[in-house]
Design a protein around this nucleic acid. Sequence first.
RNA 1: UUUCACAGCUA
Length: 242
Amino acid sequence: LVTYNILLRACAQARQLQKMEELLKKMELGGFQPDIFTFNGILDAHGKVGAFEAMDSTLKNMRKCKVKADFITYNTMIDAYGKAGHIEKMEETLEKMAMANIKPQLSTLNTLLNIYGAAKCVVQMELVLKSMSELGIRPTIITYEVLIKGYGNSKCFDKMQKCLGAMGDAGIRPKISTLNAIMEAYSSNGLFKEAENLLDGNIVVPTSLTYCILYKAYLKNGLNAKADNLLRKMDAAGIVPS
RNA sequence: UUUCACAGCUA
């Protein structure tokens, strides 16, 4: 069974969904009962390409096989609907999850934050955060990074900064990707002063990507002199282009 | 063996 699950995953990664379904039939004919791993993997494969009808029939199949949906099943569906911009379907799924008495997990909430962040739904993000604390779930670095990107998207710079502070208070060290997310937010909104401050970095040591983000923003705004200057600064910081 | 942000390597 594990072998089949691994093979199915290979099909999914290769985007050979056709082969995947064939293999599933074959394993059922061979007397193997697909398990929760099998179904979750298949759901995700369909979800990633927005094949919602296929997802529905997979769910039906699951029921037929008496395999109970778990939180990962729901996470997978929430993510698929959310990424496709079907927010209503996503929230519907969330309700179904509650009705099935399955508690949202950290990853469920991270998924929601990510999707609401991309959709610039700051209000919804706050609601998710509220339920997170009600559930007694602690944010992780993933949560914070998703939040920072989401707030940056919506130009909520104050909230972004607060997040960074909260991260420090929680004893979570920002990573380079955290810094780059903040850089992206400031740069793309023309807040060059703030962006430049990031380079002199009390947060993390910038990498070449950090510089590239700012460079791009300078050029977009016709600040060519500043851009040239930035390259010199990069050089001085000992960053070697790859 | 399955889901969520990013980063790195393959380049």
